[in-house]
Every structure is written in C-alpha cells, then in structure tokens.
C-alpha cells in the first residue's frame, strides 16, 4: 500500500468556497441580530459591517415578545416525550412483528399495514386530524405528541425491524429456558441490545420533531401555547418594522439546536447515516 501524502487540493478549494455559502447566511443572521435599526443601510458596507455595539438588547426584547422560555420549554417537553415514547413503543411493536412475521398471516399483515403508513402525507391527515383532536379534547401538546408517535411509527418500525433481523434468536432462547416471561425477556435482553438503533431513532425523531411547524400549527394553534417554530410564525408580524428584533429572535430559536449539534455532532451524523442507509 503506497502511502500518498498528497492532498486533493482541487477538492479542498471547492470545499472551502462551498463553505462560504453556508457561513454567509449565518454570519448575516448574527450580525443583523446585534445591530440597531439605524445601522441597517442598503449599502454593502452597511450590510457586511460588524455592529457598533454588541448589546443584548435585541435578544431581551425578542425573548419578551415571543415568550421565548415558555415556547422553548414546550418544544423541549414535546420532543423529549416523543422520543422516549417512540423508542419504547416502536421498538416493542417492531420486535413483536419481526418475531411473528414469518409464521402468522395476521402479523405480517399488521407489519405491512403499519409500514405502508409511510406513504400517507401529512397533507391528507391534517384536516381530519384537526377536527378529530378537537373532538377528543386533544388539541394541545398531548395530542401533538400522540400524533408524532403514530406518524413516525412506520419509519421507525422499518428501522428497528431491519436491525432486529440481525439479532440472533439464541439470545432469546437462552433467556426463555431460564423461565422468564416474554415481557421480561424483551426488556432485560432485547431492548438493551438495540442500543445503537435507539440512538439512531432518537436522533432522527428529535430533529424532525424539534423543527416541525405543520403539526403544531394545525393541532395546537388555538391552545394559547407555542412551540419554538410556532412562536416564530405567530410573532413574525409583530417584528414587522424591526428586522433586527426579528433576526435576534431567529438566532434565539436556532441556538438550542446548534448547541445540541455541536455537542453530539458525531452521534448525529452517524445516526442519520445509519437511518438513511437502512
């Protein structure tokens, strides 16, 4: 094996140039968020220059107007609960389906039934669900969580079952011989074994739920509570005349996920890759 130390400089240059398309919008967001309206002119220097004072006033005001902390808490609660419920419920049903799939028409039908739900776009469900959740008194964050658990079930079941196929039956049999019930066996042995897939599912679900706009918009818009994206939508007009406030608010809503990303970058990337490949 030859050890070539030469770098592909062409690719490197391209990558650095491409990086600017990512950095520039983010740079603009930060800079505008810290400026005052008087510094916003239409000239190039006005646009690219750094703010004169780095004051946090815009952020304080934006937080006040959008009720930032409460929206953040709502988003966090919904995301965490959805992820926990998804990891538990989806892995459980995937296990049952994979184990019984082969020798039962009923279970293989259920499997196909659930997985085919992947093709149902939210657009066709949104209006009936809006009515239905209202009728069931679920037009709030609880209803949103239930909907997410159901909506992401097809995809996650597919992921889990793909993984479970590779888990040897021997593990189960050994535990069964010891006299443990099926329920116990699952939680003691199968569930922990699926850890890598739990991570993948958790990350994919968390990212999707955190940023989702349509579901909270359709279901909990009237409940007086907001998630972070919903708050952004609702208060957009309130910032109307002050783009600096608006951008401060955008930056605020981007920071939580940025932090999450910086901390768990490696896991996120491998989780997403895993999921996509499956």
């Amino acid at each position: 094996m030859k050890a070539r130390q030469k770098y592909n400089t062409g690719a490197l240059i391209l990558l650095i140039l491409g990086l600017s398309t990512i950095i520039f919008p983010l740079y603009m967001t930060v800079v505008i968020a810290f400026k005052q309206p008087s510094e916003m002119t239409n000239s190039i220097s006005g646009i690219l220059s750094l703010p004169q004072h780095w004051s946090l006033d815009n952020f304080r005001e934006a937080m006040r107007v959008t009720d930032f902390w409460r929206s953040l808490a709502n988003s966090a609660v919904i995301t965490v609960l959805t992820v926990v419920l998804s990891n538990v419920i989806h892995s459980l049903i995937a296990y049952v389906l994979v184990s019984s799939n082969a020798h039962s028409r009923f279970y293989s039908f259920v499997y196909l039934f659930i997985v085919s739900g992947m093709f149902v776009p939210f657009a066709i469900l949104m209006m009936p669900l809006a009515k239905q959740t209202a009728e069931m008194h679920l037009a709030n964050w609880a209803g949103v969580i239930l909907l997410y658990v159901v909506f992401y079930m097809p995809m996650n079941v597919l992921l889990y079952s793909g993984y479970l196929v590779n888990v040897p039956m021997a593990l189960e049999e050994a535990a069964r011989v010891d006299g443990a019930t099926t329920w116990r066996t699952y939680w003691r042995i199968i569930f922990p074994v699926m850890k890598p897939m739990h991570a993948t599912v958790a990350i994919i679900t968390a990212l999707a739920v955190w940023n989702d706009v349509m579901t909270p918009l359709v279901i909990m818009a009237g409940s007086g509570q907001n998630t972070l994206p919903l708050a952004q939508l609702n208060f957009q007009t309130q910032f109307g005349t002050n783009y600096n406030l608006a951008f401060a608010s955008y930056l605020l809503s981007l920071i939580p996920i940025l932090i999450f990303y910086l901390v768990c970058q490696r896991q996120i990337l491998s989780g997403v890759m895993n999921g996509a490949v499956k």
């Binding site: 919008p25 940023n211 706009v213 996120i268």
Partner: peptide, 16 residues
C-alpha cells in the same frame, strides 16, 4: 460544517 444547514429549522431558514 456541511451538515449544519440540515438541522436548522426550515421556517427560520426561510425567513433569513
């Protein structure tokens, strides 16, 4: 760095 745009909320990205 290149994966960054994907994790940002599309609504806010749209506003920006």
């Amino acid at each position: 760095a290149y994966f960054l745009p994907n994790i940002l909320g599309s609504l806010v990205v749209g506003y920006i």
